[in-house]
Design a protein around this nucleic acid. Structure first.
Lengths: 157, 157
DNA sequence: TATTGTTATACTCTATAACTATA
DNA sequence: TATAGTTATAGAGTATAACAATA
């Protein structure tokens, strides 16, 4: 019979998995950053475009909430994006304090490019993964996300 | 017979999986950031400690390579960490141009805390996942990392 | 001549606090 | 009185370029 000492301890499987997750996050983040940089964007600015693309026009306040960032920060990001002609600030129809932000034509086109680049990446990453494995992977990811949000109440979307 | 129009297109499974991956990265990153902030660290500084903890003392040059950051950047990070008494700069034994950086006792203790917090998180995240599923998940993660590095030559560690 | 780390400078993201215009 | 966005100020991370000491 094997005693505990016969099995080299090593890191727990859960820790290994989390390490992989962190590694993947890093590589993915770096890659995305280069992707947006190629189009003259930063990650933070791309995040603004992305939010507007997927949720439509909104106030700066809403944008700040969506991006989990201060209103002041949004002002700066929008100033830069507006100077590049990627977003448009308009008067809010009913609240004269508020500003309604939307994508310009250029902004929409650029974001669509980002989106399609992302789809290409997804295809390249998962093309040779059997459908069953991909399904299981996606399911596990969703589970971990739920678990993570449960563990850390601050981290909720 | 069903025509193509009968099946609502929807995003490809691969894109969904990538979206989940990005979501998980975000939540995980935010959580880690709060974790290090609680201990008076920033993500970048924690990265320095982490590298020294896992690879031992090294020159600033090596650190810059490891972190994929400019030497100038390392100078700034080390200045801050040194002021907090977490790292030590020593003369390099054979190259008088170079500086050998290592963790102080406090630095080592703090990093060990981070490490154990990470292990706790891993346990919390994966505790209720059946071993088989966890294995499959880890394997898929490794595959995707490999694929990602293959797709993007710049992203190699 | 090349390399190590630093000083000088600049840009971006981020935050808090005070202020203006509106609700 | 509270809210939307801005100005003012500050700190952190990052980069490039020029420079000193050393290889």
């Amino acid at each position: 019979m094997k005693s505990l000492h016969d099995m080299p301890e090593g890191p727990a499987p859960a820790s290994v998995s989390l390490d992989r997750l962190f590694e993947l996050s890093e590589v993915l983040g770096a890659m995305m950053q280069r992707g947006v940089a190629e189009r003259g964007l930063t990650t933070a600015r791309a995040g603004v475009l992305w939010a507007l693309f997927h949720e439509g026009p909104m106030t700066q306040r809403a944008l700040a909430g969506r991006l989990r960032v201060t209103p002041r920060n949004v002002t700066g990001l929008l100033d830069a994006l507006q100077e590049d002609g990627l977003v448009v600030r308009e008067a809010h129809p009913s609240d004269r304090r508020a500003t309604l932000v939307s994508l310009s034509g250029d902004g929409r086109a650029l974001t669509a490019e980002l989106r399609s680049g992302r789809d290409d990446l997804a295809a390249a990453l998962f093309a040779d993964m059997p459908p069953g494995q991909l399904d299981a992977f996606t399911t596990s990811l969703a589970q971990v996300i739920d678990r993570l949000k449960a563990v850390d109440p601050t981290g909720r979307a």
